[in-house]
C-alpha cells in the first residue's frame, strides 16, 4: 500500500437502487495536494465524492462494492465508526449550509460533537479556537464583531467560508468540496479559491468543479470522469495541455455540456 495516498479505491462500484452510478473506480488521491474532479453533468462526481465519507448512505437505497480506503483504512469495513470517519473527512456542499445557529456555535458544532463532556474547553479556549479557525479561512476580520449573530445572515461567500471553517476545529485530514463556488459570484469564487491555496498542504483536498479555469487555477492533479467511469487521472498541467484520452480533450475543449 502506498502511504502517500489519503484516499485510495479499488474496483469501487456504487448503485442507487438498480441504477449503477460508479463503475470500477480506481483512484489514488495524494496527501496534501488539491485534486480536481471534473466531468460532464451526471457522470458521478458528486457520487464519488460522497462515497468518501459515506454520506451517500443517508439515502438508504445505496449499495457499494469494492474497496475505498481513507488514511489506509477501508471505510466499507463493518467496524468503521461513521462519526470517526466523518471527523477525519470534512465536507463542503454546493450550497452553503450553515446550521441555523450563531456564527460561533457553527464553528464549535463539530468540535462539541466530538469532545466528551470531561474534556470540554473553557470559554476562553473556545474563543481562541473560534478566532483561530476564522483567521485560517480569512473570515475573522469581517465577522469578529458579530460572532453571536445568525450565520444565515452572512453573505454566501462568507457562509461558504464558514462552512469550511467549521470543519477545521476537529482537525480533519481530508476536505471534500462539491462545487463549493457554484453558488458564489466571481468575487466570492476568487476569495474561496484564495482560501483553497491557503489550506493547501495542511489538508488533502478533493474538489468537484464544472469550471475548467478553476480546475486549472487551483488543482495540482485532475481526475476526469465520464459516465460513471474514471477516464484519466493526471497532473493538472499535463491533463490540460496534453490529455491522454480523446474524451478528456473533447470535454476540456467544451465539446460536452
Amino acid at each position: 500500500m502506498n502511504h502517500e495516498f489519503s484516499i485510495e479505491s479499488r474496483q469501487f462500484n456504487l448503485w442507487y437502487g438498480d441504477f449503477q452510478a460508479l463503475f470500477d473506480i480506481d483512484i489514488g488521491i495524494r496527501q496534501g495536494i488539491i485534486t480536481a474532479l471534473i466531468g460532464p453533468s451526471g457522470c458521478g462526481k458528486t457520487t464519488l465524492l460522497r462515497s468518501v465519507n459515506r454520506i451517500n448512505e443517508r439515502l438508504g437505497y445505496v449499495r457499494t462494492e469494492g474497496l475505498m480506503k481513507v488514511m489506509q483504512k477501508n471505510i466499507l469495513d463493518s467496524d468503521v465508526e461513521l462519526a470517526q470517519l466523518r471527523k477525519q473527512v470534512g465536507m463542503v456542499f454546493q450550497r452553503p449550509n450553515p446550521l441555523p445557529l450563531s456564527i460561533r456555535d457553527n464553528i464549535l458544532f463539530a468540535h462539541k460533537l466530538h469532545t466528551q463532556s470531561h474534556e470540554k474547553l473553557s470559554r476562553q479556549d473556545e474563543n481562541n479556537l473560534v478566532e483561530n479557525v476564522l483567521r485560517q479561512v480569512l473570515l475573522w476580520d469581517s465577522v469578529k464583531e458579530r460572532l453571536h449573530q445568525k450565520a444565515i445572515d452572512l453573505s454566501l461567500e462568507e457562509q461558504q467560508k464558514l462552512c469550511i471553517a467549521r470543519l477545521l476545529p476537529v482537525k480533519p485530514s481530508i476536505l471534500l468540496m462539491d462545487e463549493p463556488c457554484s453558488a458564489l459570484d466571481p468575487k466570492g469564487t476568487e476569495a474561496v479559491e484564495e482560501l483553497l491555496w491557503e489550506l493547501r498542504g495542511q489538508y488533502t483536498i478533493l474538489i468537484v468543479t464544472h469550471n475548467m479555469a478553476q480546475a486549472r487555477r487551483v488543482s495540482d492533479e485532475s481526475i476526469f470522469m465520464l459516465m460513471g467511469k474514471l477516464m484519466e487521472h493526471a497532473p493538472t498541467d499535463q491533463m490540460f495541455v496534453t490529455p491522454a484520452c480523446k474524451e478528456t480533450a473533447d470535454y476540456i475543449e467544451g465539446r460536452y455540456g
Binding site: 456542499f93 460533537l113 466530538h114 476537529v170
Partner: peptide
C-alpha cells in the same frame, strides 16, 4: 441540508 451538514460532521 441542515441534517446533511450535521451528519457530514459526524453527528
Amino acid at each position: 441540508r441542515y441534517r446533511e451538514a450535521a451528519e457530514a460532521m459526524g453527528a
